[in-house]
Simulated scan of single mutants.
Amino acid sequence: MKNIILIVLMIVTFTCKAQSPIVDIADRQIDLVDGVYLKDVNNELDKFIGTWLYTNGNTSLIVKFQKKTQVYSGKYYRDILVGEYRYIENGIEKINTLPNFDNQDNLESLYEHSLISSLIILKREFPGCSNCNDNEKRVKVSFSDPSPNLSHLDGMSMGLRYMSELGVPDKMQIDFAKKGTSLIPVGAAQEPNLPFGRYVLTKQ
């Protein structure tokens, strides 16, 4: 009988250690500890899952997002939004990373995606949103352009705003900007292939 009780206690102890403490990704008033799980408790990331399209004449932007849950990041676990994009300007394709969306086996890590996020931000947090409500939640996305001649650009981020209206397709507002004072070589590009600015995309 004592052996049975001991085995049960060992199983319970092991189970408790194996479970990660869960913290809402929108809660930044806590100290992160090793093994914590930053979970998308209120499904803020889910709003952006899918394919989105912006068009202006013969200029277009396609963005695709999907959600990955409980991804290990070295110290803790977190839910993340990963994505890729394609930008065509005046009928000419400037950048296309969409193949990495469908062929993720070619990536060594989910963190190699061009668009990655798990951070919830508000109106005045970078990149700012002039037409957002004060307490409106957005998602901040780290942006990268894989073009080798743009490696000098860093600190680029997108703020995603979800907009829903009865009877019309959902929309996503992107505020895209660069933060920081990194030195840009003389004559080098000041922005990536996708220009900084605001884009309003429609859910496809």
Rank of each mutant, 00 (worst) to 15 (best):
N3A: 04
I7Q: 02
V8L: 15
L9F: 11
V12E: 02
F14D: 13
A18L: 09
Q19K: 12
V23R: 10
V23Q: 06
D27L: 09
R28C: 01
Q29M: 04
D31A: 14
L32F: 12
V33Y: 08
V36P: 12
L38M: 10
N43H: 05
N43I: 14
L45T: 11
G50C: 03
W52K: 08
L53G: 01
L53C: 03
L53V: 13
L53W: 05
T55Y: 02
T55Q: 10
G57Q: 04
T59C: 00
L61R: 01
I62S: 01
V63P: 15
V63Q: 14
K64R: 13
Q66M: 12
K68N: 01
Q70D: 00
Q70K: 07
Y77A: 05
D79F: 09
I80R: 14
L81Q: 14
L81S: 09
E84C: 05
E84I: 06
E84A: 05
Y87F: 12
Y87G: 06
Y87I: 01
I88S: 13
I88D: 14
I88L: 15
N90S: 07
G91N: 08
I92A: 06
E93W: 07
I95P: 14
N96A: 03
T97W: 05
T97L: 05
P99H: 03
N100G: 09
N100A: 07
F101D: 04
F101I: 05
F101N: 03
D102S: 13
D102W: 07
D102V: 01
N103G: 03
N103W: 04
Q104R: 04
D105Y: 02
D105H: 03
N106W: 02
N106T: 02
L107Q: 10
E108P: 10
S109H: 13
L110F: 12
L110R: 13
L115H: 02
I116D: 11
S117R: 07
L122F: 06
L122E: 09
K123R: 08
E125F: 01
N133V: 15
D134I: 01
V141C: 08
S142Y: 06
F143C: 05
P146L: 04
S147N: 08
S147L: 06
P148V: 05
P148N: 08
L150E: 04
H152N: 06
D154H: 14
G155F: 04
G155P: 13
M156P: 09
S157T: 09
Y162V: 07
Y162D: 15
M163K: 01
E165K: 10
L166G: 02
L166S: 12
K171M: 12
K171Q: 15
M172G: 13
F176H: 10
F176E: 08
F176P: 05
S182Y: 08
S182Q: 10
L183P: 00
L183T: 11
I184L: 00
P185I: 00
V186A: 01
Q190C: 08
Q190I: 13
Q190Y: 04
N193K: 09
L194V: 14
T202K: 06
T202H: 02
Q204M: 03
